[in-house]
Design a protein around this nucleic acid. Sequence first.
RNA 1: GCCUCCAUAGUCAAGCGGUCAAGACGUCGCCCUCUCACGGCGAAGACUAGGGUUCGAUUCCCUAUGGAGGUGCCA
Length: 500
Amino acid sequence: MKIRTRFAPSPTGYMHLGNLRTALYTYLWARKNGGTFILRIEDTDQEREVAGAVDAIYQSLKIAGLSHDEGPDVGGEYGPYVQSERKDMYLPYAKQLIEKGKAYYCFCSRERLDRCRAEAEAKGETFKYDKHCLGLSKEEIQKKLDAGEPYVIRQNVPTEGKAGFDDVIYGHVEVDCSTLDDNVLIKADGLPTYNFANVIDDHTMGITHVMRGNEYLSSAPKYNLMYEAFGWEPPVYIHLTPVMTRDVQKDENGQPVTGEDGQPVEIVRKLSKRKGDPTFEDLLSRGYLVEAVINYMVLLGWSPKGEEEFFTLDELEKLFDLEGLSKSPSIFDMQKLNWFNAEYIRRLTPEKYREYAGPWLEKVLPEGFDLGRLCELLQGRTEFFGQLPEMVAFLAKMPDFPNDFYVNKKQKSTVESARDALNSVLPVLEGIGDWSEENLHDTVLDFIAGRGMKNGQMLWPLRIAVSGQMNTPGGAFEIMYLLGKDETLSRLKTSMERLG
RNA sequence: GCCUCCAUAGUCAAGCGGUCAAGACGUCGCCCUCUCACGGCGAAGACUAGGGUUCGAUUCCCUAUGGAGGUGCCA
């Protein structure tokens, strides 16, 4: 049997990382088996429509390299692939269910439902629809229908017995039907709910493996009841854990909640754009590499067989398996992503690095810098490109700095020794004609050797004096070279004046 | 509250009845070094608790605890 998987996001306008990971796993499983990867847009909630959101999904999938074989934009034999365009397909199926006694019309008003919900809550019970409309006679129903009364169609879940399903990761999951509510299948606006649409669409699109977030774990038994009612074979279910983050708990006003000990209450919650967590797009715009993000995300919730942890998409398409999928939620770790990204950046060719870094550097540096050399210095120190402007800001403008920067015990540098060192080296630098890095290096080292100094005693203060920073991407020679002779000497003199 | 699922270091995780309980990120120390970073070497750090089952439990079962998800005419 040919495997068909689907990624079915609702169009929110961005791709959050949990979704990206779901898409990735779904894609990989299809590719691994030579199957078909389908994109379906779940847009049945008209109140939540976001303009341009569907295009954003195409974009993100494309950038991520997860190409779909069927979908709204590429077509396919099982279309349409947008749920709102399949609007008319659902009602007939719902009517089939009604004929089988597995669903029924419901004319209850929202007010009545709200009231029931409130009552249940007051009694500390879980709200369940009371099947009020199940008792309506055929004639009553027809009368209301003819009169144009608004209605929904509800699933008729048995009041006793068990319902369950099998999941590749979780095994057999079973619940008492008595705990299940009669969900709405068709809404008053005629559109299906997710609860119904996923069943109809997955079946009619021939989906063999359903991979989705595990927020559906508790409703899956109800879906299986429908598959049974239709006499359809349910798909293989693979419920994926959510991607979490650690945060402090906030109240309605966004203020941190403190516990009895006065400390902020730590919670683990799902990654959420609204709460400030990065989306896939955010990461890219901060200068993360697609490959690195993919590599990190695939390992968050899945582990390969061997020890290797660097993978290209191509490799993953062969390697990915279901056994490695994890059962418990995993926390998104920015530090490890940073490490992956830095690692991928280091492996870039110098040309590629320059291509990525260029725009970030040009934003803050005036013309005339040797960007090629600068990039060489930066490549091994870049975690993500967005940090570059800050890293090189000192090259564009000399920062203010306190004189105690000169003090370094290990280099045997003090304010006094720094003053001496700088005074002595200034004429040497002034006399240099060939301001190349190599010549700077040789000349100054010769001079240091001649004076019998320790390298650090000269080089430490020199680097501070021209950079104004304790830490710099590169040493004194590299920085002086990059700044050029005029700027170096001018910075040096200013720093010396401040040293007195 | 009720229902479902989950539980190995700060994080990702291997393990699937007998292991000195992998590996990676992070942390710390040392080396390299004019700083940072890279690189090299090394260290600390975990089976939530209590009961069973078993010759033997991290591994199987139960209970508790903790966490997550569900409890929408959202998906």
